[in-house]
Design a protein around this nucleic acid. Structure first.
Lengths: 129, 129
DNA sequence: CTCCTTACGCACCTTCAGGTTCGTAACCGA
DNA sequence: TCGGTTACGAACCTGAAGGTGCGTAAGGAG
């Protein structure tokens, strides 16, 4: 009835997801929840993240005003990262997502298994002849 | 101190985002919030989505147990989509994300602008010589 | 007889997020 | 003198997400 009332560029969902849906972003924010932390510490805490990806992710968060970067020019250098007040407003959202997953992700996994099974058994998907 | 306690594959965030962070997924779920709706209706409501992407997105949601697909074998065919109870549990999460964006996205945009400005003015980023 | 309709599948192409590797500054301890 | 340290930048490569266009069924309207 109402035609084209949902727009990708205008929709709020797109905006949030654009910020937090990068591969490592949520994990980096999570590692910052407890307060200020050094670059190297983040890297140690997050399993499998490369230096490049961590730097890239942090740069993006800094650009978006979600974290602050503080350089102490010693040698070797010390760089501390902290969530800004704006960044902290994300925490309740993230908590909610986390809780949803804890509660419902098993159901999703189960659904996927049964879906694959019914596919193998040649269930009707096609609009048949 | 605590080394590698955050893992990509084990973390709940990854799981939720894996489900809802595809380009069109959130918008499709949003279009289903009000109840059962036909394929063509969804397509009309979401600006710029192609047939292929809509089908792909719906297939994925169906596979994850978030929507049901009901085919009425008439000609031309009628296919109705509905959120499952599991799918409906996502709505509060989505609402929260939406509200966050409504409240805070302007700040993010502003932060981006000032970031670009300070870049142009050659701010110190490098660990200097 | 022909065209329009709905809801797809399939094949192909492009783009970009993400990953790997290498180089760097300059101090400190051995 | 030489390797280890920290926190990066730059160049390059790859795979997967997303986009475009074509084919299709069968009935009803004209």
């Amino acid at each position: 009835m109402k035609p084209a009332d949902i727009s990708l560029t205008a929709c709020s969902y797109t905006h949030v997801l654009e910020i937090i849906s990068n591969k490592w972003t949520a994990l980096v924010i999570y590692s910052l929840e407890e307060g200020t932390i050094r670059y190297g510490e983040i890297k140690k805490r997050i399993e499998g993240i490369s230096q490049k990806m961590l730097t890239q992710t942090l740069r993006q968060l800094e650009r978006d005003g979600l974290v602050t970067r503080k350089v102490t020019p010693s040698v070797p250098p010390i760089v501390d990262y902290t969530l800004t007040p704006l960044g902290k407003t994300l925490i309740p959202c993230m908590k909610m997502l986390k809780e949803w997953a804890a509660e419902h992700y098993p159901s999703v996994q189960q659904a996927r298994v049964s879906y694959e099974l019914s596919e193998e058994n040649g269930e009707v998907r096609q609009l048949e002849s």
